[in-house]
Design a protein around this nucleic acid. Structure first.
Lengths: 204, 204
DNA sequence: GTCTATACAGCGATAGAC
DNA sequence: GTCTATCGCTGTATAGAC
């Protein structure tokens, strides 16, 4: 909390975050323990408690770091993508990267376990999705304006559909580690939003 | 396993299943314990072990019952819905019912925790989604034939998109218990599949 | 700043009385 | 069929040595 976003791998704190993050994304918050993390790092559970007083604080640090990285990636897309459709493709790419590492979206995982989380974590997860939704709505509005996207329903519903489709797609594709299935599903989702003249993804 | 699908509330076994099912859907497999179930039922953990030798067996029984109920509902839709579009609306209704009870889809929850589950449960979850996907593909093909649905991409990709969209939509809507958000998102998803002349859901 | 040692609650599970 | 009693293990967490 009082610490700047730790760079990967530097220092014990950073290594703890890296290991715990992977465990959280693969096994869920209730599916890993201080013991698991400590064993993999070759340190003691007590040492972990030095860096993070409790599992809740560790969880908070993980969400903060993840959300920060995600937010930075969105800012990067805003800066580099030529149009709204490209931003959206980049957004899908963020999800594909996570799934390719055989992980679930950290906040998607926590969303499933939401009812079992300490209050601050519940809030942080909700905030993550709220800011994602806000960004998506902005991009969709942009796409309607620059003509790179087709807007069938409301921007609100479409943003929810995209977000839900990607999270749910990951959830299911991860069952048999089929990244290809996720990719084609996501492409289908994007095709729905493509303007009429570019509708068929094969025509790309 | 050796028992027919228990009717809700009859006998201790049925009451155990009802309570455990709710806990599994709300808190996840790693988020509830034998102790939680026993306490709520006013029995001891040991009594639970009589009915289900271990948590894995309880989990298997829960999936079997849930999948059986779901499968029966799909058969019911096949028998009563006038066309493919109506079947699809009925399918969405199944999800809405679950979310209205403030629960996550049982198998969607288990999908998140997949890597931590005993092997038989992993298999059962995969089977659930495989049979759902098969049913959805069949309905989509029907819809293309009877003209009640529009088929933009492949049937495979569209089925995955619908399944993922609904599971992911539940996951996120449950964060703030906003059933309305799920409903409109799902309607948007269905609107994408509606034929051109009936595209706008407001025209209904 | 990291470890040893320890506490204590909870877990899933079993044996055997009733 | 349900209980008491108990097991061995793991969970998070703390106090204090180094």
């Amino acid at each position: 909390m009082s610490e700047e976003v730790a760079a990967n791998g530097t220092g014990t704190t950073g290594r703890i975050l890296d290991v715990a993050e992977r465990m959280l994304q693969v096994r869920g918050y209730n599916g890993f323990s201080y013991g698991d993390v400590a064993t993999e790092l070759g340190i003691t559970r007590a040492a972990l408690h030095y860096h993070f007083p409790g599992k809740g604080e560790l969880g908070q640090a993980l969400i903060e770091r993840y959300a920060g990285r995600f937010s930075a990636a969105l800012t990067g897309l805003d800066a580099t993508a030529p149009d709204a459709a490209a931003k959206l493709r980049g957004y899908v790419g963020l999800y594909t990267d996570v799934l390719s590492a055989d992980r679930m979206c950290l906040c998607g995982m926590l969303a499933a376990e939401h009812r079992t989380l300490p209050d601050p974590l519940q809030q942080a997860v909700a905030d993550f999705f709220a800011s994602n939704t806000t960004w998506l709505r902005k991009v969709l509005r942009e796409g309607c304006a620059d003509g790179s996207l087709r807007c069938a329903g409301t921007v609100e519903d479409t943003a929810s559909m995209v977000l839900g489709g990607l999270e749910g797609g990951m959830l299911i594709a991860r069952l048999d580690g089929d990244v290809g299935r996720f990719t084609t599903t996501a492409r289908q989702l994007l095709a729905v939003l493509a303007p009429a003249e570019t509708k068929t993804p094969a025509a790309r």
